[in-house]
Design a protein around this nucleic acid. Structure first.
Lengths: 364, 364
DNA sequence: CTGAAAGCGCTAACAC
DNA sequence: GTGTTAGCGCTTTCAG
């Protein structure tokens, strides 16, 4: 008799009553819970005939393992928390797709939270995920230095991967791209085509609108791209007047104003590097308003491939980043860290400059 | 003495050792687990002084509620499963954003899985989420009739919201848009501008490439839009030759081929209705290849607002759907169903035709 | 107002 | 090969 004294008996297959538990399967198969678990879980030793009885019983009762109980007992949830700025943004959506799929391949589940790059929401998100007892964390940090919540999350702090952005002095894995090189390549292409007046439209969510100076809280990606662009300009002996660089948040009307601000200078740049899809759209919107034509009046290069960049006329040249690979690498690194107990790694993926039609030749 | 016999004592604050449990807090505050739980959970009656001692102890130990244990005991995970085709697709990304945020507002977590509109992956996703014991399910069903896995999920079957697509004879809530009306409006605008040769480019993931006939497994959204368009054409006494309608999967090269197939007919349509962003991009790509100009040679209307539709030259007219509202409504309906035990509802949100510049006047 | 005790469903030692 | 048992950390009657 022992402990199995639940009065309920003979649960109907799928319909009615609460879902079947392991003990229901065990009883129907006339074995113990341990044996049923072994048969279903495929571990330990179970007689062939017994195993069949158990699986038959499980099917008959429409048995579903209770993952909550399993997680509780095993101390692993097989879940990974993902903290990003905004999943409806195309970059994060693509990364999330990779993360979700790769998680699934490894038997993990992804729990995704948006922060809108607000550090308070990020802190809150990490807290929630810690309470959910996720086995690991992938974070796109919204601040380059505010990171107590990341250092201070006990176990999780050593099962953490920073995606897209680095944080100084954190012993966490990072998956980034060569943003500095990407920006350099873009500027060099402009220069090779004879452009000497080159503007920069930089996405920084920290800013409330747009400004000409680098916000204090600018994230590593922003700093790197800026540094890469400046280095390339300097090497060519070119100037970067303040009026030609604008930091803007990811909001079309604001980006458009920022782009107009750059393009309204006299003389205006003949080329603009945009640090993401939204910035590129802002340049296009500004050109529309100003009666300028991309690929003829204004050369444009954008970071990140967009669904439309290949299709426009002229097609837009881009600094491609391997976004899907980034998400995938974040998960594989994290899983290795969780399972293998290996230390943090820094992964930097290359960018590829894809030259299409938006960078016209000024010398021709 | 009783059961609290764990030998470990005095856990260091945040660092070192396993995370603090309720019992550690209780001991430090010199109360029982029950009292500590009441104080922290904010329910039941607790003396003011006691409450303060407990919260102080919790803070000191950096205590985090173990959600897994809570879920196990309470029989609620406060998690909602979301089964969609592809989160990197802009429509689903926007819906997911709304779902995640609205879930968070209600204290729930969203678990998102991609199916690529593959019914087998959908079945698998539902199984996984059932094992995770999610409290409810939001599904974008990939098939209009294959639904055993949805009917057959015990408790979950009555805590299910179908998003974007309906399934015949399912007693589940649905959140959809007036796709028939949206398509009708679009066609009527074409007609009002003098277009009589109107083509249809319809997204159907079931198809392996593109074809002229409606696939058997076409989802309600597809059928409704097709029906709406046909009704409007019929009412105007217009014909819809097979050669002017194409069903295509969401893959730019294939969509482009499909659009080219339509535009290569003689005489070719002067207007095309595209049923999503990807279809519209395919039309643009085809026009590019064929040397045709949107807004002059070809009028275009697309379902769903895109980041670029406002910015292009000409700006693209669209049938707007309230995507964020759809996601939000799915969650609020589901939560009401979970908490209030109310029955399933059918919510249909309106579409809005936004007339921009891509539909030129043929009569002028 | 506070404490004791009974599990939620599962797994993993350890017996037999 | 199979069964017994002891919890994982929490909530929640039920007493006091």
């Amino acid at each position: 008799m022992a402990s199995d004294t639940t009065a309920s008996d003979e649960r109907g297959g799928e319909e009615g009553g609460r879902p079947a538990r392991l003990i229901d399967v065990a009883r129907l198969a006339k074995v113990s819970r341990a044996t049923a678990a072994r048969a279903l879980g495929g571990y330990g030793f179970v007689g062939d005939e017994t195993r069949e009885r158990v699986t038959a019983a499980a099917r008959k009762l429409n048995y579903r393992l209770n993952e909550v109980a399993r997680a509780m007992r095993a101390g692993k949830t097989l879940a990974i928390g993902v903290v990003i700025a905004d999943i409806s943004n195309s970059f994060f959506a693509a990364a999330a797709r990779a993360i979700i799929d790769t998680c699934a391949e490894h038997g993990y589940q992804a729990l995704i939270l948006n922060t809108d790059d607000d550090i308070r929401r990020e802190v809150e998100a990490v807290r929630v995920l810690a309470e959910k007892r996720v086995d690991g964390l992938i974070v796109v940090p919204s601040s380059p230095d505010h990171n107590v919540h990341l250092r201070n999350s006990g176990e999780l702090s050593s099962r953490l991967v920073l995606l897209d952005r680095r944080i100084a002095d954190m012993a966490a894995s990072t998956v980034t791209t060569d943003d500095r090189g990407g920006a350099r390549d873009a500027i060099e292409l402009f220069i090779a085509r004879g452009h000497t007046r080159i503007g920069l439209l930089v996405s920084t969510v920290a800013t409330s609108s747009h400004s000409a100076t680098l916000p204090h809280q600018a994230v590593s990606t922003v700093r790197d791209r800026l540094a890469g662009a400046k280095a390339a300009l300097r090497q060519a002996g070119l100037d970067l007047p303040n009026a030609w660089v604008r930091f803007s948040r990811n909001d079309l009307p604001i980006v458009t104003q920022a782009a107009i601000a750059i393009l309204a200078t006299e003389p205006r740049p003949t080329a603009i590097l945009a640090t993401c899809e939204e910035m590129a759209l802002g340049v296009m919107a500004a050109c529309r308003e100003l009666g300028l034509t991309i690929g003829r009046d204004i050369a444009l290069i954008s970071f990140d491939e967009s669904p439309w960049s290949r299709v426009l006329n002229p097609a837009i040249s881009v600094v491609q980043r391997p976004i899907y690979e980034m998400g995938r690498a974040a998960v594989t690194t994290l899983v290795r860290q969780i399972q293998g107990g290996v230390g943090p790694q820094a992964i930097e993926l290359p960018t590829v400059l894809v030259d299409r039609e938006s960078v016209f030749d000024l010398k021709g």
